[in-house]
Amino acid sequence: MSLYKIISPKDFIQLTKTTSKSRIITVDASWHMPNTNRSGLKEYKEGPRLPNSIFFDIDDVKDDQSSFPHMLPTVSIFNKKLSNLGLLPDDTLIVYDKIGNFASPRAAWTFTTLGHEGSVYLLNNYNDYLKLNKQDSESYPLEHGTIDKITSFAPTNYQVKKDHIKDQVIDIHEVKKLVDSGEIKNYNFFDARSFDRYSGAAPEPRAGLTSGHVPGTYSLPFLSLVNSETKGLLPKEELKEAILKTLNTTGAEFDPKKPTLTMCGTGVTGVIIKTALEESGLVDSSKLYDGSWTEWALTYGNQPVYVAKKE
């Protein structure tokens, strides 16, 4: 199961009324693809926001030595960034984004993978919260007005005691070894991008990047696992059926006895399907190939592009 928990807007409000052992801090982790002309930071500052929110930027809290976007930060970078945000190790965090569930699973996964000690919840989801706010703004409050800072908390000395990186991440060297040895057949390895990007029929959104997929991986598009309107993760009881139906549609295979890996374009939506697989009960735990297709294609771009076989 995921290191973080899924929470509905109603349960989130209930949590704020019952939890007193730690601070409850909402975390706006909104992030948008470059071609959308939207800025998560700008929208956070302009509002509305969930009360008591800070802004967590996956393009800032990252490995600054990597040439690939928003890669998982080192523990030292994580400590520094969270200290600047004014967080404490035992804070209860409610992570959300204004798309629904897009970058917020990535942010929640970052917190727990790097070893945040307090409870981390993924709000499912902000758009449902907005609907409830329109019905009852007192019970489901929003913070309005423009602000100029990403946190209202004073800096702290945040320190991680134990991370979970080895349990949560697989790197390109390990993936390449699995491919070259043929051992990849012993894994469920799912790609969250659209089937057309996976198959090579559609171009990647990043200029100059070849399309296709890592040999031995299967297609599991993340959009099939979220509500088409709100973009929230489907209810737990619907996830298993949706996953198996989608895998059948894309010609993928799933073996519950095999360990599971996930990936996508740059490690964002790969966490969505990772979360869905674990939440559905189909797998107990899984690992993310953080560099995903962008790293693979740019590293091994001189090799043949592996495309899906046509039936």
Rank of each mutant, 00 (worst) to 15 (best):
M1Y: 13
L3M: 08
L3G: 12
P9L: 04
K10E: 15
T18P: 04
D28E: 01
S30C: 10
R38W: 01
E46S: 13
E46V: 12
I54G: 09
D60Q: 04
V61E: 01
D63K: 07
D63I: 11
L72F: 09
L72G: 02
F78S: 13
S83H: 02
S83G: 07
L87T: 01
L87S: 04
L88T: 06
P89W: 10
V95A: 03
I99G: 05
G100E: 01
F111S: 10
G115N: 08
H116D: 15
E117V: 07
E117A: 14
E117P: 06
L123F: 04
Y129I: 08
E138V: 15
G145Q: 08
D148M: 10
I150P: 01
I150H: 10
K161N: 14
K161D: 12
Q168K: 15
I172S: 12
V175I: 15
D180Q: 11
N186I: 09
Y187P: 01
P203K: 14
E204L: 05
G208H: 06
G208C: 07
S211V: 00
P215R: 11
G216H: 09
G216Y: 11
E229H: 07
T230I: 14
G232P: 06
G232T: 08
P235A: 12
L244P: 01
L244F: 06
T269S: 10
G270N: 05
V271Q: 03
I272D: 06
I272R: 04
I273D: 01
T275A: 15
A276P: 00
G281F: 00
L282C: 05
T294M: 09
L298C: 04
V307I: 11
A308S: 14
K309Y: 00
